[in-house]
Write a protein that binds this DNA or RNA. Structure first.
Length: 837
DNA sequence: AGCACGCCGACT
DNA sequence: GTCGGCGTGCTC
């Protein structure tokens, strides 16, 4: 038997399967998906088996044998191995990178070089050197010594050791090890027949009280027990138990244990709640797809507080009743203990939780519960989409519009797209839930001109549970405030509203809408922001050159001192900090208790949780923060939400800025008045007439979506066209520019070849035409123009039609890497980027 | 990614 | 004449 193995070297030249022989002894352990140690050149590497082969016409002389199998159960299923290939093609990464991404970090290979004594009959003359004698003596005493220890012990450049190795006096062996091992605990086993324990009590010396206690305890509780628990229960030391084991009365062994992050916490079991009419009609649709084992993608558009989670829970129950498994993805930020509690409460020990706050060991153990079939439901952040289940019936993606479902490192996958791909393989249903669905998803629920069935099905929940109304949203025009002489960051109405809550002892959430590094320039009198005449996005201010620049096409203009629109001189560079808001709050409302949540205050582990608990316990009047306060919070006493400046996201140089603004405003407004008390929302803005602000204030998602889709269609942006972002980096700009331009030229050449006809790539693409079309923008300097002393340039490929473009870009990238490898040029490709920066 | 092989400058 | 620079190519 032979195996095709992908080795752990993420490089162009090794991005293929290598053939290995499977030794007879390992035959029954090696399967597709096994992790193996294989000799590769002079070393031993970790690899993944992707195919099994019978003895065929292959060149058997050149194959080496697999050295070891690293897991008892293959960590990947055949389906996941196939998914790895799909990922590598779709997102243009090395296959091993894709496979690695599907495993917990604990299974990342660790390589160890061990030195042992070799053939001492070698060149004995070498041993005349005292230094060498010393080393050999050290190795002889130890048996095997890790290379690192030897290097440390004999401070040396390693040349002596190298000499000994090449002469054969010392030998080197390489091993593949796990970064993390299963945790072990000493466990006490009583002998199989209870009788001998009784016997033992009599045979012990009368004064061996403690040992007798232990035995009596074990007679009463005749099952295996952890040593630490036994010591606790009988109040004895480890020595007492050990001596019993030495006499052979009991057995003491190391047993693998699971680290349970939720150990000692009990979750109150909950029963399914009665569903509203809307909920049950939505549930009915999902249930029938699950029951019929039909692959279908549902987009569940439910307003904030409409009870989506209960629908998820009951749908999962249906899936479990079918004997199948379910995956639930949640944005990292909202994977709070409350969220976990709801799932553990309903499904108990059948749930595994995967999130980034777990230690590597904890995550590994949660993950092993899946491979061991101990759980049926996984709830987790992005990477939980790779849970190694074999019978998936349902995949749920909550808050599907969240950009955190896109991984920023290679493989730059989008969990939403991966979920659909996996669901197809399993004939499973997918539920994408959101109060503000992404335009990509909503567009997929719509009928296209050619009358085909749309790929996704839209389900809607318009009402909050228990008939609670959505909060009223007031738009505050900050230009008016300025005219009336209010230069503070709080409008009169927001100020009054906060004051009122302080008196009524109700709580306020304040959102400072700030993201990214890009600063934009705006007129404070009329709200005018300079935009690019070709791209319809706002220009970014570059401090160094004092220029306004477009990041998509490179257009630039001089910084303005006077507003081109109204001639006002109140031009401001935006980018306000939460600290400043906090200070001003303190001045306006002496004694106000504010909890500030931003990147500065939430880096520490568990701090995020701590602040929210404090706020819940009413130890503060105001929760002030960035985007993170907008998501999923549910506090009964919050009756006021204020958005300090809605425009900061709106004016980012990104075609998705209107979408992000609408989402953020809708989500944060959803935080108010979720319980008995009514909610009120104030949105401060310099562009009150903007449709994203207007639609959010009316809670009108569909109106927003229609308007925005129109704009996207006209400007050839997603979801009608797809994008690929290619970033080049190098220490020197001229070389970088030349290379990036060469790349673009080559890509266009290939595209023309492919289309087999001369194509004017820059002609307007007719949205109605059937064929593949493509446009390349740039190269231009990246918005972050230098990182770690490397300059960055980027270009954007816009295309429509099948995945040909990503294949073309892949081929161009390969060509590029071949010719520029030595120049230390780096290239990074992002298919369907979330941010063009 | 590593590592060996191989073809041209500055030294005993 | 040799030691060593890192360009090129391979790893089942």
């Amino acid at each position: 038997m032979y195996a095709k193995v992908i080795v752990d070297v993420p490089a162009k030249q090794t991005n293929r399967a290598f053939d290995y022989e499977i030794p007879a002894a390992l035959r029954k352990w090696v399967e597709v998906g096994s992790r193996v140690g294989v000799p590769f050149g002079p070393r031993v590497l970790q690899g993944f088996v992707v195919e099994l082969l019978e003895e065929t016409q292959m060149d058997t002389k050149r194959v080496k044998p697999i050295q070891s199998v690293l897991d008892l159960v293959p960590p990947l299923t055949e389906e996941l191995v196939g998914l790895g290939r799909w990922l590598s093609r779709m997102y243009l990464c090395h296959e091993v990178t894709a496979l690695q991404a599907m495993l917990p970090a604990a299974l990342k290979a660790k390589y160890e070089r061990a030195i042992s004594l070799g053939d001492e009959s070698g060149e004995q003359s070498l041993l005349d050197l005292p230094d060498l004698q010393e080393i050999v003596a050290f190795v002889r005493a130890k048996g095997t010594v890790p290379m690192e220890t030897l290097m440390e012990r004999f401070e040396n450049d390693g040349s002596l050791i190298k000499q000994l190795l090449s002469s054969g006096i010392l030998m080197e062996a390489q091993m593949v090890k796990d970064r993390m091992t299963a945790k072990k605990a000493l466990t006490v086993f009583p002998p199989a027949d209870g009788r001998s324990l009784e016997e033992a009590v009599g045979m012990l010396p009368a004064r061996a009280n403690k040992q007798q206690d232990v035995l009596r305890y074990l007679i009463e509780h005749p099952h295996a027990i952890r040593l630490t628990e036994l010591m606790e229960a009988v109040q004895v030391g480890a020595g007492t138990v050990k001596s019993l084991a030495d006499r052979g009365w009991i057995e003491l062994r190391e047993v693998e244990v699971m680290r349970d992050p939720y150990a000692g916490r009990s979750f109150a079991r909950t029963k399914p709640l009665p569903l509203t009419e809307e909920q049950s009609s939505v549930f009915g649709e999902i249930r029938s797809a699950v029951a019929e084992r039909r692959h279908e993608v549902f987009l569940l558009h439910g307003v904030t507080g409409s009870g989506k989670t209960e629908v998820y829970l009951q749908s999962i129950q249906e899936c479990l009743d079918q004997g199948r498994e379910a995956i639930v993805l949640v944005p990292e930020i909202s994977l709070t203990p409350q969220m976990v509690e709801r799932f553990k409460g309903r499904f108990g020990d059948l749930v595994a939780v995967l999130h980034s706050r777990l230690s590597n060991g904890e995550r590994y153990d949660e993950w092993r519960k899946i491979t061991r079939k101990q759980v049926k439901v996984v709830i987790g952040a992005r990477s939980a989409i790779f849970a190694p289940f074999t019978q998936i019936g349902l995949i749920i993606i909550d808050e599907e519009h969240e950009s955190s479902y896109k991984q920023e490192e290679s493989p730059k996958y989008h969990a939403r797209d991966v979920s659909v791909e996996r669901a197809k393989q399993h004939n499973a249903a997918v539920v994408l839930g959101s109060a503000t669905p992404s335009l990509e998803s909503i567009q997929k629920t719509m009928r296209t001109g050619n009358g085909e069935k749309p790929p996704y099905r839209l389900l809607t929940m318009k009402e909050r549970v228990a008939g609670r109304p959505l909060p009223t949203v007031s738009i505050v025009d900050m230009r008016e405030e300025l005219k009336n002489g209010n230069r503070s960051m709080f409008s009169k109405s927001l100020y009054k509203a906060i004051e009122e809550r302080l008196q009524k002892k109700e709580q306020t959430v304040l959102l400072l809408n700030r993201r990214g590094y890009a600063t934009f320039v705006m007129c404070r009198t009329c709200g005018f922001v300079s935009t690019c005449p070709h791209c319809d996005i706002s220009l970014t201010y570059h401090q160094s050159s004092r220029m306004l620049r477009c990041h998509y096409c490179g257009y630039a203009e001089r910084e303005v001192k006077q507003c081109p629109n109204c001639s006002s001189e109140h031009i401001r560079h935006f980018g306000t900090g939460t600290q400043r808001v906090e200070e001003e709050l303190g001045k306006l409302f002496p004694g106000i208790r504010v909890i500030r949540m931003d990147v500065d205050t939430t880096t520490e582990k568990g701090s995020h949780e701590k602040w929210l608990t404090m706020f819940r316990d009413k130890q503060a009047d105001v929760l002030l923060g960035t985007q993170m306060v907008a998501k999923g919070l549910d506090f009964p006493d919050v009756t006021l939400v204020g958005v300090i400046a809605a425009d900061t996201v709106l004016n980012l140089p990104d075609f998705r800025s209107a979408e992000r603004t609408f989402q953020l405003l809708t989500q944060v407004a959803g935080r108010a008045g979720r319980h008995e008390k009514l909610g009120e929302v104030f949105v401060q803005t310099y562009t009150p007439e903007h449709y994203s602000v207007q639609c959010a204030s009316r809670h009108d998602y569909m109106a927003f979506a229609r308007h925005e889709l129109d704009i996207r269609a006209n400007l050839d942006y997603p979801p009608y066209h797809r994008l690929i972002l290619i970033t080049f980096s190098h220490e020197e700009v001229p070389l970088l520019v030349r290379s990036a331009e060469a790349f673009v030229t080559r890509l266009k050449e290939l595209a023309q070849e492919q289309m087999n006809r001369p194509v004017d790539l820059f002609s307007n693409m007719e949205p109605s035409s059937e064929s593949f079309s493509m446009d390349v923008l740039g190269p231009v300097a990246s918005p972050i123009s230098r990182i770690k002393d490397r300059y960055r340039f980027q270009c954007v490929v816009k295309y429509r039609g099948e995945a040909q473009a990503s294949e073309l870009v892949g081929r161009t990238a390969q060509w590029f890497e071949e010719r520029s490898a030595k120049e230390k040029l780096q290239i990074s490709v992002d298919v369907d980027p979330q941010f063009l920066m």
